[in-house]
């Protein structure tokens, strides 16, 4: 059994259902998740990464429950948070990248070498000793991506990873992602970023309202967004 398997997922936060009856088996290499603000995308990303155990249903990757088996999760799934300030744990760039590798059992010196190699891969070798808090928002996002990609997870879950990146960095990153074997699950508001993806999930109000290839889902999604965006009835916007 391979891939991400979601079976009838339900999550309730503060007494309110945030996800309901979400089922999908994701085996495609590139999966996009779209939906309005507050539709439950981030929550679903957390469930896939095993950071939240669903209140109902089952979430598995390659047959293993990521929320229960954190050690397996470490090698299997990496997640990039929507806000990089929520993700960065360490005061310097090198420590931040090396940390995940020592967590995977690498010796500190090997981890550091691998971290440097990752920085070099993106032409950011000079960042190694830099203070993480001194990076710009987009630079922080790139750091978070490098820190997770360095761990070589089988599945990479990304929550709006490109919102602060400039175009050259984004293209460089897309090329890098194309070159690795990992399965990518990406949340975005920009259908343009989903070009070349294999499958799109569309969440609305915590439910999966469309699931299929981009050609089938994205035109409908964009049309719907335009229609809602054209309305002046703000009541509809209250998520």
């Amino acid at each position: 059994m391979t891939g991400v398997e979601l079976r009838d997922i339900g999550v309730t936060l503060a007494g309110r259902p945030v996800l309901q009856g979400v089922s999908a088996r994701l085996e495609e290499p590139r999966v996009g998740i779209v939906g309005r603000n507050g539709s439950g995308k981030t929550t679903l990303a957390r469930v896939i990464a095993g950071l939240v155990a669903p209140d109902a249903g089952q979430a598995r990757i390659d047959g293993a429950d990521m929320a229960a088996d954190r050690r397996a999760a470490l090698a299997t799934v990496g997640i990039i948070f929507q806000n990089p300030d929520h993700q960065i744990i360490f005061p310097t760039v090198l420590e931040e990248i090396a940390f995940g590798l020592t967590q995977q059992g690498q010796r500190p010196r090997a981890a550091e070498a691998a971290a440097r190699a990752m920085l070099d891969r993106f032409g950011k070798g000079h960042w190694a000793p830099a203070a993480t808090h001194s990076l710009s928002q987009g630079q922080k996002q790139l750091l978070c991506l490098m820190a997770v990609l360095a761990m070589r997870p089988r599945v990479v879950v990304m929550d709006e990873p490109f919102s602060g990146l400039d175009i050259p960095t984004r293209l460089q990153l897309m090329r890098y992602l194309d070159g690795i074997a990992a399965q990518v699950v990406m949340i975005t508001h920009d259908p343009g970023q989903l070009r070349g993806f294999d499958r799109i999930l569309w969440l609305e109000g915590g439910r999966l309202i469309a699931d299929g290839p981009p050609d089938a889902v994205l035109p409908r999604f964009e049309a719907q967004m335009r229609e809602w965006g054209g309305l002046d009835d703000l009541a509809h916007l209250a998520g």
Partner: peptide
């Protein structure tokens, strides 16, 4: 923010005691 970082720490394995520390 602290709670989010706690989650980030868990996402990368949390506090594992059998991992070698800073000394090689």
């Amino acid at each position: 923010d602290a709670d989010h970082v706690a989650e980030a720490l868990r996402a990368r394995g949390g506090i594992l005691n059998d991992i070698p520390d800073g000394r090689n």
